[in-house]
Lab assay of single mutants.
Amino acid sequence: TTIHVGDLTLKYDNPKKAYEIAKKLAKKYNLTVTIKNGKITVT
Rank of each mutant, 00 (worst) to 15 (best):
T1F: 12
T1Y: 11
T1P: 06
T1W: 10
T1G: 10
T2D: 06
T2Q: 07
I3E: 02
I3V: 13
H4R: 09
H4Y: 11
V5H: 05
V5E: 02
V5D: 03
G6M: 09
D7N: 15
D7C: 14
L8M: 09
L8V: 10
L8C: 12
L8P: 03
L8G: 02
L8R: 07
T9G: 04
L10M: 06
L10T: 04
L10S: 04
K11D: 08
Y12T: 05
Y12Q: 02
Y12R: 01
D13S: 09
D13M: 08
D13R: 07
D13V: 06
N14V: 05
P15D: 06
P15S: 08
P15M: 14
K16E: 12
K17T: 13
K17C: 08
K17F: 11
K17W: 11
A18N: 02
A18S: 01
A18K: 01
Y19T: 04
Y19R: 06
E20H: 10
E20K: 12
I21H: 08
I21L: 08
A22D: 00
K23T: 12
K23N: 11
K23W: 12
K24I: 14
L25Q: 01
L25T: 01
A26R: 03
A26L: 06
A26C: 13
A26G: 04
A26T: 01
K27W: 07
K28R: 10
K28Q: 07
Y29S: 01
N30K: 09
L31K: 02
L31D: 00
L31C: 11
L31V: 06
L31G: 09
L31W: 08
T32W: 04
V33K: 00
T34S: 11
T34E: 10
T34I: 14
K36Q: 14
K36C: 06
K36W: 08
N37G: 12
N37F: 11
G38K: 02
K39G: 07
K39P: 03
K39E: 15
I40E: 02
I40P: 01
I40M: 04
T41Q: 08
T41V: 14
T41N: 08
T41F: 15
V42G: 00
T43S: 13
T43D: 06
T43I: 12
